[in-house]
Design a protein around this nucleic acid. Structure first.
Ligand SMILES: [Zn+2]
Ligand SMILES: [Zn+2]
Ligand SMILES: [Zn+2]
Ligand SMILES: [Zn+2]
Lengths: 174, 174
DNA sequence: CCTTAGAACATGTTCTGAT
DNA sequence: TATCAGAACATGTTCTAAG
């Protein structure tokens, strides 16, 4: 087998599912993800992991989500699944293994669900008002959404890509 | 085994990866997807398929995409992958098996890449103009984006959900 | 009730840019 | 050049609602 938890060099061409293949041609070197059977190309958030595990961990942190295990907090990858189905246990596996990620804007505390809803409503309302006012009256009032969008929490969908200036979809909601 | 291409009743609880499990408790009935090893619960686009194959097919049609096989148009599902990695061959497998889907708005011909770009630029420009004008002058001019968004091709990202009125993400780009 | 198209949500893979 | 966070893209799963 070509998998190694250590730094021993292994080879692979480019099997789409990032699973190890038989060493046919010497191309890229890799090791095994600390958390699942997939290939790990680099260290992610302080732990050698595959990209799937990286993104799973990242999204939960960014979106500031939390899950509760329905069982005994001992869920395992079952059947043909490569990872733990229970999000709570899968995430705990990440942190237990040493993954860590503290976004800059982490001081932004968790908005309550009601706050999030309020935020969305605010945007919708502001946009609606802008639409009305710009048709019927002249005003200097600032109708831009910057006030609301300013220091918005990462969990919201409406983030603007720093490079492209386009809206991102990671934050859901769209 | 509990898989059957016919209508014989099988059972499953709720294994996350839609793969058949051993018949433990009699709950739901299912058959095998015509195109892959997954479970098929219903007919989709005229063929008994799983939801993954359904969405794969749907998206290509909706987005009006086309792919070309880099090999001999004989690609197969390899290794641990459940489906054909080559999109061209996987899609052809769908149509060959009888899947069919002709959206209402199909008369909307394929916009050239340049047209697509132009569309995006139009929206951006219109939005920018609206932002400026509503600050400095009074006008009856319609600054809504409806003109542009009107009969827009499905392949564009900016579709509005008929029910929620929110932007959808299926169309990519956003 | 069924069936199933489509939306919504979740996850996985690849690309890009900064360092 | 190598690393890796983050964006962008692609795919898979679940939910909703119309008929
Ligand atoms: Zn992993
Ligand atoms: Zn658990
Ligand atoms: Zn299938
Ligand atoms: Zn092919």
């Amino acid at each position: 087998m070509c998998i190694s938890t250590e730094s021993s060099a292994c080879s692979s061409t480019s099997a789409s599912p990032n699973l190890p293949t038989s060493p046919s041609s010497q191309v890229a070197t890799f090791r095994k993800c600390t958390l699942c059977p997939r290939i790990a190309y680099t260290t992610n958030y302080n732990l050698l992991t595959c990209d799937a595990c990286k993104m799973f961990f990242r999204r939960i942190v960014i979106l500031n989500k939390s899950y509760t295990c329905k069982y005994e907090n001992r869920c395992r990858a079952s059947g043909k699944s490569l990872v733990i189905a229970c999000k709570a246990c899968r995430f705990r596996q990440c942190t237990d293994a040493g993954m860590m990620f503290r976004p800059n804007f982490s001081e932004v505390q968790t908005p309550e669900p009601s706050e999030l809803e309020a935020f969305v409503r605010n945007v919708v309302w502001l946009d609606a008002r802008r639409g009305k006012n710009m048709k019927f009256k002249f005003t200097d009032e600032d109708f831009s959404l910057s006030d609301v969008l300013e220091n918005r929490p990462m969990k919201l969908v409406t983030r603007v890509c720093a490079t492209t200036g386009w809206l991102l979809k990671e934050g859901k909601l769209l």
